[in-house]
């Protein structure tokens, strides 16, 4: 158990504290939830804008990461796993990006999330950028996959903040389906 993180004196508080996690991926190894949990590394928790920049400025950009890895930013207390109580009824929007676009897209996404630009109450759980060899994948996780008004609003905000070409394909996947077929994308 960690001590709760709070904004420092004079800092600009965020609506929610968020935690960065990092997962190096090893191609070919079966990703069971057990080894996923063992493999995921806690990076740090931020409760203010200043704390966010302090971490973010020292972290590698998704576009600079090589091989397979995932960078997660989730509300503090929510693990970036399908099985977490906040996630198990939820799902995610998936956006596939060609190489070279991930760093900017990731920054735009997490600034929108930290700034509460999605306007969907408590529905946002977190965001992930997955670095792969051929492409990068960005996803936004929410609590209630069956809430269509919310998922539509998240999709529209995501389109706006990522500023992607109109033909970009966005796919919604329920975590229950990910659990069933044991695949993330």
């Amino acid at each position: 158990e960690r001590e709760p993180v709070t904004p420092g004196p004079g800092e600009h508080a965020l609506q929610f504290a968020y935690t960065f996690w990092f997962t190096p991926r090893f191609p070919g190894r079966q990703a069971s939830s057990l080894n996923f949990e063992q493999n995921i590394k806690y990076v740090g928790t931020v409760a203010s804008v200043e704390q966010f920049w302090a971490y973010y400025s020292h972290m590698g950009r998704p576009g600079d990461l090589t091989g397979h890895s995932d960078l997660h930013l989730f509300k503090d207390g929510v693990k970036p796993m399908w099985e977490d109580p906040a996630n198990k009824e939820g799902g995610k929007w998936i956006v596939r990006l060609r190489k070279g676009l991930a760093s900017r897209a990731w920054e735009n996404l997490i600034l929108a999330m930290l700034g509460e630009q999605f306007m969907v109450g408590e529905e946002i759980c977190g965001a992930v950028v997955s670095v792969r060899f051929q492409e990068d994948i960005i996803s936004v996780w929410n609590k209630t996959a069956s809430d269509q008004a919310t998922t539509s609003r998240i999709r529209d905000t995501l389109k706006r903040v990522l500023n992607l070409p109109p033909n970009t394909i966005m796919e919604y996947k329920m975590h229950l389906d990910s659990l069933k077929d044991n695949s993330s994308f």
Binding site: L14, V49, A54, G115, E116
Partner: peptide
């Protein structure tokens, strides 16, 4: 309660705040 909302440019402005360690 009131939500704490930041526009992108507001967050970017705070990037170089002296409080950012």
């Amino acid at each position: 309660g009131t939500r704490i909302i930041y526009e992108r440019h507001e967050l970017l402005q705070l990037r170089n705040s002296p409080l950012t360690r």
